[in-house]
């Protein structure tokens, strides 16, 4: 799959199951948007096979578009239409739209239904954007870095909206560069760096965290001690046993495992990806 002169992504092999929230994670410039735009039918690929809802997005027609919803990475709304009007406009494009009031509730804009888009905050505009992608009652929803630039509370509100979509049985294809977002929302995560897939799995087992070295921290005689171990139970037993024999305490004892964030940073560290 390439776009323009340089090959943006290659050898990408993805499978998304109906009804799951799939997170496509990677740093800026890793090829996330290129991939998602190929899946959405915006970009033509130079090679490979793609099937979305059983059709090739490059050739798919109106019926296919009726079954997908798209939230672009950046896209402003018509500033002079209200929340209800923007949804009404898009509802007209689909044969069996969801009721407008229901969508307003789903994206948490009840108090803002008659507010024009220009008066909404960034987070509210983004939620309206999701509402416009949902109005056609799609089976599959694409969200391209939906929370970039959000403050923490707006991000949390947005996550609630996405969690609600999973309850509706929608399939969600989410791209993000926030590890925490993938961890909170996704059933499965695939990590891309420099146009290639570097890891895939559930948020829990990604990067084989269960079997990686754990780190033990404590203070002894005023000194910081840091131990890395792959046999955590045994090492910890010996340490605490010795301390008890000596009648000492292990001050500030702490055991840490690599977080998903650590795994992610490690996996994408030498990708050299930049816009």
């Amino acid at each position: 799959m390439s776009y323009g002169e340089t090959e943006a992504v290659r050898g990408i092999d993805l499978e998304v199951m109906p009804g799951e929230v799939f997170a496509f994670l990677g740093p800026n410039g890793a090829g996330k948007t290129t991939t998602v735009e190929i899946l959405e039918g915006y970009r033509h690929r130079s090679g490979g096979e793609v099937s979305v809802l059983g059709e090739d997005p490059q050739r798919a027609g109106r019926e296919w578009r009726e079954r997908i919803g798209i939230v672009l990475q950046s896209g402003r709304l018509d500033p002079y239409l209200s929340v209800r009007e923007s949804l009404g406009l898009y509802a007209g494009y689909f044969p069996a739209p969801r009721p407008i009031e229901e969508v307003i509730e789903l994206v948490g804009l009840e108090g803002k239904a008659d507010e024009r888009a220009r008066k909404l905050s960034g987070g509210q505009q983004r939620r309206l954007d999701v509402g416009m992608a949902l109005i056609g009652d799609p089976d599959l929803l694409f969200l391209d870095e939906p929370t970039t630039g959000f403050d923490p509370s707006a991000r949390r509100q947005f996550w609630d909206v996405i969690a609600g979509l999973r309850d509706l049985g929608k399939t969600v294809f989410l791209t993000t560069h926030y590890m925490e977002e993938a961890q909170r929302l996704a059933d499965r995560v695939t990590i891309i760096a420099a146009g290639e897939i570097v890891a895939r799995g559930t948020p829990e087992d990604l990067g084989d965290r269960e079997h990686q070295a754990a780190t033990i921290h404590y203070r002894a005689g005023g000194r910081e001690v840091k131990l890395e171990t792959t046999t955590l139970v045994k090492t910890l037993h010996e340490l605490t046993g010795e301390a008890l024999e000596r009648g000492e305490d292990l001050e500030g004892l702490e055991v840490t495992r690599p977080t998903l964030e650590d795994v992610y940073l490690e996996l994408t560290a030498d990708s050299g990806a930049a816009e």
Binding site: Y42, E66, L72, S74, D78, F94
Partner: peptide, 17 residues
């Protein structure tokens, strides 16, 4: 303005001809 705002692109992602 609509093109640069991404509004035309969003519209193209819908079934509207």
């Amino acid at each position: 303005i609509a093109r640069e705002d991404g509004r035309l692109k969003r519209g193209r992602g819908t079934p509207m001809p």
